[in-house]
Amino acid sequence: MNQPENHASGIRRAADRLFAPLLAGATFRSRLIACFGILLCVIFAGLISAWLYNHATHSVFLIAPVGASAILLFIVPSSPMAQPWAIIGGNTISAFVGVCIYHLVPEPYLAAGLAVSLSVLVMSVCRAMHPPGGAIALTAVIGGKTIQDTGFLFPLMPVALDSLLVVLFGMVFHWLLKRPYPHNAPVINQHQTQDIPTQMRGGPVAADIDAALAAMEESYDISRADLEILIRQIEMQAVMRSHASGNEGPDCAAIMSRHVVSVKPDDDDDYARSLLLRHNIRSLPVVDENNRLLGTVGLRELLKGKGAVSTLMTAPPTACAHDSALSLLPVLTNGRSHAVIIVDDDHHLLGLISQTDLLAALARLTPVLRRSGNR
């Protein structure tokens, strides 16, 4: 390759670094949806604020840093700095700090620096870190006569009000899109015991994550709980990718149970319960007269009600016979699903893979995995 080509490729690599998305997992579609949410949110906050105070100029009661709060809430709703307490508490606390500094420190440059830095300190102590709070503290000091005449009412009206409106709109918007907000770490112990969830056992522990973070000497905009879950998912995806070819891992047809005990939708709950106990199994596929899967029913469902199986069944996780058995790892380790139903293209019941089936398959794969790791 000649020198001009090397130069051109270097420019492309530099451009990729400069313009590549900074947020992992972000897509253009999600950004468009977020932009639409921000548009509606800012309009909503401005109109409601103006209406509540019966004021003709909307901008007087809509502070500029609210736009930054909306960006965080809609672009990175899982960020610790985009949660309700961070937005409402961080903005309001920072406004109080800024107003106090304005009245105590007459030198404007010193007051500006103190307002921003002390707002960060107080937000940290209150576990309400929110970057737009620094801008609000600065606004309280240099925002001009209109802001300063508001005095100690400024943190409440408009700051707390605008922040509350942004959070309320964001909660409704994410709810309509079926996205969780406020954000919580998605993995919990489904059995309501003190045990660590199944997919969190083995591998790195919390102390390892703390040690790695300390060694990096950096702060990251992700909670430790989310980081731990992300690490587990990466490990699982790596195992699935390493054996996706099927040469070293079986497909579902190879390990599924083919003689599956099932029930019809018109069977009653007592009959279904007796089958579960007789065969010592946890779930029963519900099939129609053509052996087409309709749902599943287990002891959990049977304890919640009585009547025909069709009124108690739930939608089960399914897979195809040619799918990799290792692809079932996320489903069978989520603490909720005990089995995956194997169906054909027309949804006819072919077999069933339980947690025990998958565990036995993984045990047989252990020597293969060890040899692969030593290559």
Rank of each mutant, 00 (worst) to 15 (best):
I196S: 14
T314D: 02
H348G: 07
I43D: 11
K264A: 14
A211D: 11
V125N: 09
I147F: 03
G249A: 15
A111I: 04
L276V: 05
T356V: 13
L276F: 06
R241G: 14
L350Y: 05
V122H: 00
Y220S: 13
R282H: 09
G335C: 01
D195E: 14
T27V: 05
L176H: 02
V42C: 05
I38L: 01
P80K: 03
T146M: 13
S119T: 04
M129Y: 07
Y102I: 06
I196M: 15
A225W: 01
L32M: 09
M256V: 02
A137Q: 07
S337E: 15
F36V: 15
T27G: 08
A115F: 01
L349W: 03
V343C: 02
A111G: 01
M216E: 12
L326S: 03
E107G: 01
L277E: 10
R371D: 15
T146A: 11
A206K: 15
A207V: 09
A112W: 03
R282Y: 11
A238M: 09
D251A: 09
H279W: 15
L39R: 08
F28R: 11
G202F: 00
T314R: 08
V166C: 06
L161T: 04
V99Q: 10
A50D: 03
P186T: 00
T366F: 12
K264W: 09
V166D: 06
T92C: 01
I342R: 04
G46C: 06
G25H: 01
D221K: 12
I43F: 13
D208M: 05
N54D: 11
V159F: 03
L52M: 11
P106L: 03
W175Y: 10
K304C: 11
Q237R: 15
E5N: 10
Q3H: 10
K304M: 14
L47V: 15
I342F: 02
D269C: 08
I341M: 11
M157R: 15
A115K: 01
H243L: 12
L39E: 08
E248T: 14
I93H: 01
T333I: 07
L39I: 11
D344R: 00
G305E: 07
P317I: 02
L349E: 07
S124Q: 13
R13K: 09
D226N: 04
H191P: 10
Q355L: 07
H7K: 15
R241W: 12
G305L: 05
P317K: 05
R31M: 15
R371L: 13
L349T: 01
F36S: 12
L32A: 12
I196N: 04
A361L: 04
A95W: 02
N189E: 11
V105D: 02
V172C: 03
N54G: 13
V159K: 06
R232G: 04
P180N: 03
I87T: 01
G298Q: 01
G351C: 00
G307Y: 02
V125F: 12
E107S: 07
L275E: 04
R12V: 12
T92L: 06
L293K: 02
P80N: 00
Q83I: 07
A206P: 12
F19A: 04
G351M: 03
P108M: 03
A214C: 09
